[in-house]
Design a protein around this nucleic acid. Structure first.
Lengths: 131, 131
DNA sequence: CGTCTTGCTTACGTTCGCGTCAACTTGGGG
DNA sequence: CCCCAAGTTGACGCGAACGTAAGCAAGACG
């Protein structure tokens, strides 16, 4: 590898996001790339955060929720109250995800049933005669 | 129960949606309440669909995706091509959900780890002396 | 009769997560 | 030196999924 640092373009190609998106996340304080002069440079920490951001999005969390969660993944505050608050945020998200997990399991079973029933209907449906 | 039919208000109270939302879903052709004069009346079919809509939303599907999926749950078209197309839509959604399921499982494990690590940090952090 | 409630339609406003565009700077090549 | 490409900021735009507000109709009630 050339270096541990990536340009915005390399980031975009690697993670399939646009420059606009990366700058947007930065404006929302989700990532903090360094600056070499004007240009942004993303290190491993930034990349790890980005991966978590993209994952969080897939689960339907807002950027704000994700921002709060990210604090868990990086020991930011050092005082008890702050750590405790972060843990609580994490617990809430965890509960959300566990609920989603259970519900998803049901929905998948459901959908499978519907699909196989539809397949039965398909088998039972005569082909169109050409005319 | 009074009847099998519910007014818009009863629907809203039961499913925690607003009238605006129900009319919006109708405009997008996701539900088709009958009309008694001007008023909408929702039967069990409508309610079943609404439940599926709300569930789909929780998984991050768009209303359009949900609309297509709903066809699976109600044998609409009777010709092979249409049934087959509906099945394919269902398969795609199913694949989405299965991926989401797997990823969610990982993310939950991950988050649990982070939370317990944060708890360790909390235990290791001395209490603030009052001053 | 008036008025209250419930619901209807139409239309415009709002939030989130970016896209798009304009205008500027900066660094490297020819 | 000039130009181009890449990057930056700032402002405005947009689609999805509703919220909100205005104005009207129609039945219930005293």
């Amino acid at each position: 590898m050339s270096d541990d640092l990536m340009t915005i373009r390399q980031m975009c190609d690697t993670y399939e996001v646009t420059p606009r998106t990366l700058r947007f996340y930065e404006a929302r304080e989700l990532i903090f790339p360094q600056r070499r002069g004007q240009h942004r440079l993303y290190d491993r920490r930034d990349r790890a955060r980005l991966i978590l951001i993209l994952r969080g999005k897939r689960f339907g969390f807002s950027l704000e929720q994700i921002r709060q969660l990210l604090e868990l993944y990086e020991p930011g505050g050092t005082n008890r109250a702050q750590i405790a608050a972060t843990i609580n945020v994490g617990r809430d998200r965890l509960a959300d995800m566990e609920r989603q997990y259970a519900e998803l399991s049901e929905a998948i079973a459901d959908l499978r049933t519907q699909i196989s029933e539809a397949q039965s209907r398909l088998s039972a449906t005569p082909e169109q005669p050409r005319g």
